[in-house]
Design a binder for these strands. Structure first.
Lengths: 222, 222
DNA sequence: TCGCAGTGCCTACCCGGTATGTACCGACCG
DNA sequence: CGGTCGGTACATACCGGGTAGGCACTGCGA
């Protein structure tokens, strides 16, 4: 095996690394402060272990993206971006996240295996998951109401609100997908049982409502 | 800043472990075969490195969930589930995936930081991401058409179709969320510029269409 | 005064994930 | 017929993400 193109080296979805870098873009900070800033902006949705902040910082220093910036008045070792660190942040914000290699979706994997492995009650699996996702969705909307009730529309609260919305949208999509799977499986079961010639009846028109909702907003192109 | 999501220390989303276990539920297999079965069921959406299969298998053996089942006629070391392995699979399929600790969403993190860190052009960021997600969505639908053209609706193809649908639904939700963020940010900017008393005008009514879409499906049953 | 909660930092450890190396075998090919 | 290419099959080294847990200091209330 000769000359296999020197490995494009796809980075494995390092979100924390870039998050810390972009926080340092604002101003030099020390480790614990970085964790607090991250959590305040994301509303504690993805709790960040402090230890990881320090290990990530040392790795970033090793890679020449951050450097020590002396201590502040309280003796905290602060970090600042290097020149290449600034560039890294700029490219991160200008290039979209690649969907070529989507992260493992446990629910999708579970359902794919459930329908292929014999002896699994897929129907109740879907129902159980649906109600779980539904309660999660209700939790999110309740949190949203609480957050909306607060008076100060600071920038951090705006970000936290957007994050919450992303959770809501994802949960809604999950529920829609579960319903979609249910009808699809029911149809497949029927087609399995009655081996009649009833096929060819409008194949794959199940996605219509969601797709229409997307297209409506965008001036109807595609 | 009150109102934080509760964090009840869940296991770190080990999808591969349970995937291998549920494949072994069907019949004893050897390492390479497990990888092939997994990829055929998920259509190569999440390529599974062979090495991880072996390391995971040794860990599962250490934890008493699988055990060696001798060699097949070709000399392949096969693995079978133990009693607790069967139980593990059963509980995995009966308990829904917990959304209490959702996996890190790089796009949400990026946008949350983009709106809080000064000097980031959030508008073009959203636009770029939108078109990227849009092309990904088109790729998925194209793949769907190809998969739909094939004649044999085997169980593995059914699973692969469902996985593809989940990608489609997720991409659509992402696009809707981006549009949502855009209008929300525009409104916030307007409210920032004109510090008039124009507030209190129907707060948080942006989610209506998506929520309605979910509820509509739900009205018919359940 | 003790405890205790919060702030702040560090290290050991595990696990997921990838790259890489090895070996065997059949097919294709000059 | 020898070569080599690609697929099958397994094993291991390595790294980065992520967590647990320990240490130290400070302020505050019982």
């Amino acid at each position: 095996m000769g000359a296999v193109l020197p490995a494009p080296r796809e980075e494995p979805t390092v979100s924390v690394k870039h998050a810390l870098l972009s926080l340092l873009e604002q101003e030099p900070m020390y480790g614990y402060q970085l964790r607090q800033e991250f959590e305040s902006r994301t509303g504690g949705t993805w709790p960040l272990n402090v230890g990881q902040v320090y290990t990530t910082l040392t790795r970033l220093e090793r890679d020449g993206l951050v450097e020590a910036a002396g201590e502040d008045e309280d003796g905290h070792e602060r970090w600042r971006l290097t020149e290449s660190g600034h560039e890294e942040v700029a490219t991160w914000f200008t290039t979209p996240v690649a969907r070529t290699q989507p992260p493992r979706d446990e629910l999708a994997i579970k359902l794919a295996l459930a329908v292929t492995v014999p002896g699994v009650d897929v129907g109740t699996l879907i129902q159980r998951q649906r109600s779980a996702s539904m309660t999660a969705l209700q939790d999110y909307t309740r949190l949203k109401r609480q957050a909306g009730a607060e008076t100060s529309p600071a920038r951090a609260d705006l970000a936290w609100g957007l994050v919450l919305d992303s959770l809501v949208f994802a949960a809604e999509a999950e529920i829609r997908w579960l319903d979609h799977c249910e009808t699809r499986l029911r149809r497949a079961a029927v087609q399995d049982a009655g081996t009649t010639t009833a096929a060819r009846s409008a194949p794959t028109s199940e996605m219509a409502p969601a797709s229409a909702s997307v297209d409506r907003r965008k001036g109807a192109r595609r």
